[in-house]
Design a protein around this nucleic acid. Structure first.
Lengths: 264, 264
DNA sequence: CACTATTTGTCCGTATGTATG
DNA sequence: TCATACATACGGACAAATAGT
C-alpha cells in the first residue's frame, strides 16, 4: 500500500514583487483562518520560523507584528506568540429562504452610504448584460454597506434608465434596490450570479478599509423579470474576513438555499 | 433632482507593501477583466497614465510591460497599447443538475495529479468538521486538477479513516472521490459549502502557477450522508481567471442550480 | 530566591529593490 | 543614464520579560 509521507514544506518565494514579510504574513494568516494554528496555542517562535522559511528574523518579526496589529495574534516577550482568533466553524444557522428574500433581512441590520449616483452612457459590460442599445443611458449607483460602522460590501448597480427614474436618490438610502424595482411594477423572476475572487484596488480597498492587494469576493449578478428582460446588472465586492457565501446542497432537490453570514 | 457627476478618479496608494507598478498592473488588469477597457481599444498612453496616477513613467511602463507579458495587451511603439483580451460575457450554458452530478462531468474533461496521500492524526479543523475524536486518524489527500495541462484547482480532502481505507491511492487518480465514497456503501445526501476569497501562498501559488498574492476562490465543503454523519471535509482553491462559480436563482423555488464554468 | 534558557523588543551596519526627477 | 531617497532584507548584538529548575 502506497502511503507516501510527504513532508508538507511551505516555502516563500524571493523572486516576486510582494515583500517577503507580506508573503509570510499571508501564509501564517491562512493557517490561522484554516485552523492549523488554532486559537490560544503558541505558534512557532521567531527563530523557528526563521529556519522554516529561511528568512531573517526581521522579516519574521515584521510578519508577526502585522498579525498582532490586526489582532490575530498576541505577542509577549519571553513567552511567544499566541493565536487570538477563533475561526468561525460551520455555522448551523437554520435554513432560510432564497437570496432575494435574504437580502431584505441584511438590509435591516446594516446601513448604506451612497458614493455615486448618476445617469451615464452605459459602459460596454452594462450594455451587454442589460441588452441595451450601444448609446443607451443607465443609472449607475455605487453604494457601500456597513455593519456596525465597518464596511463589508462595495456595490455597483446599473439599471435601465426608465427603471432608475422611478425612484429618487434619497429612497436608495432607505430601501433595497430590488424592492424599488418591484415597486415600479416589475416582477422579478430569476437571477444569474457569478462568484469569483479578485484583489482590492485603490478604490475598493480604501472604501472597504483593506489594503490594496487584499483578496475580495466579487459577485456579478444579472436580475431578470418574468418576461426574461434583464432589469439590473450588479457587481458586489465583499470583504472575505467579514462575509462569506454559504450554500446548502442536496442530492435530491438541487440547491436548497444560499445565504451570507457575518463572521463575528 | 440630485444627479451628482462624480468623476471616478482611481488612485494608487504609496503607503503600502505592494510595489506601485504592481498596484497599477492590478488596477488596469481589473479594468480589462471588467470590460471598462474593452478588447481592441487603446488604453491611455504612458504619459496620460503618468498624470492620472501621479507616478513616474518608469512605473507606468513596468505595469504595462507586465500586462503585455501576460498577453492582456499589445504594445506598439508610436501607436499605443491595445487590449487583446475579450472578457467572457455571461455564458448562458443550459441548466444543469446540482453540484454533485456536475462534478462527475468535470472529472471527465480534466486530469488529476495527486500531490499527497497519507493517513495522519486529524488536524483541528478536520476533527471539528468531521466530528471525530481528538486523536482520530484521517486520510488526507492533496490533488491538483488540470484542464489542458493548466492547473485550475488545488484540492485538500480529509476522510474518516474507515472510508479512506475502502479505496486505494491509484483509484483516486481515476475516479471522483464522491464516487469512491458512495462505492463504499455510503449514501450521500447533502453538503454545506462556504465560498470566500483568499491570496495564493507559496504552495497554492506555485502549484496553480500564479504569483504569490494572487486572488484565489476558496471553497470549503462538508459532505453528509443520509444519517447526517459528515463523511468528507474538503477545501478547494480555484484560479479565478480559469474558473467561476455560477448560480441560478429563482424567486419561486429557491436556488435552481450551481455550476462551475471554464473561462476560455 | 537566584540562575538559566527561551523568546521577543530594540538597535546597528550594510546590501539590494523600488521610485522619483 | 544618473543621482537620490526610501523600503526591504540580511546578519548580528544586546536588553528585557517569561518560565522552569
Amino acid at each position: 500500500m502506497a502511503e507516501k509521507t510527504v513532508t508538507f514544506k511551505d516555502t516563500i518565494d524571493d523572486s516576486l514583487p510582494t515583500p517577503l514579510y507580506h508573503q509570510l504574513y499571508v501564509l501564517i494568516r491562512e493557517k490561522i483562518f484554516s485552523g492549523v494554528y488554532a486559537n490560544a496555542v503558541l505558534i512557532p517562535t521567531e527563530k523557528e520560523l526563521e529556519k522554516m522559511f529561511d528568512v531573517s528574523r526581521i522579516t519574521v518579526k515584521r510578519a508577526l507584528d502585522e498579525l498582532a496589529k490586526e489582532g490575530l495574534v498576541s505577542r509577549q516577550r519571553g513567552r511567544g506568540t499566541t493565536v487570538t482568533f477563533t475561526n468561525p466553524v460551520s455555522h448551523s444557522s437554520g435554513n432560510m429562504a432564497g437570496l432575494i428574500e435574504d437580502m431584505q433581512n441584511i438590509a435591516k441590520e446594516t446601513t448604506v452610504t451612497i458614493l455615486e449616483f448618476d445617469y451615464i452612457k452605459a459602459p460596454p459590460q452594462a450594455v451587454d448584460a442589460l441588452k441595451l442599445e450601444p448609446a443607451a443611458i443607465v443609472q449607475k449607483a455605487i453604494r457601500v454597506r456597513h455593519k456596525d460602522d465597518t464596511p463589508f460590501s462595495y456595490v455597483i448597480t446599473y439599471l435601465p434608465e426608465e427603471i432608475g427614474r422611478s425612484f429618487k436618490y434619497e429612497e436608495l438610502e432607505a430601501q433595497p434596490i430590488l424592492a424599488l424595482i418591484e415597486r415600479s411594477g416589475i416582477a422579478i423572476s430569476r437571477a444569474r450570479q457569478t462568484i469569483t475572487a479578485t484583489l482590492a484596488d485603490s478604490v475598493t480597498g480604501s472604501t472597504l478599509r483593506v489594503n490594496i492587494g487584499s483578496p475580495l469576493i466579487k459577485v456579478t449578478r444579472i436580475v431578470y423579470d418574468t418576461t426574461d428582460k434583464p432589469v439590473e446588472y450588479i457587481t458586489i465586492y465583499y470583504r472575505p474576513d467579514l462575509y462569506q457565501l454559504n450554500l446548502d446542497l442536496s442530492r435530491m432537490k438541487g440547491l436548497q438555499s444560499n445565504f451570507w453570514t457575518a463572521i463575528p
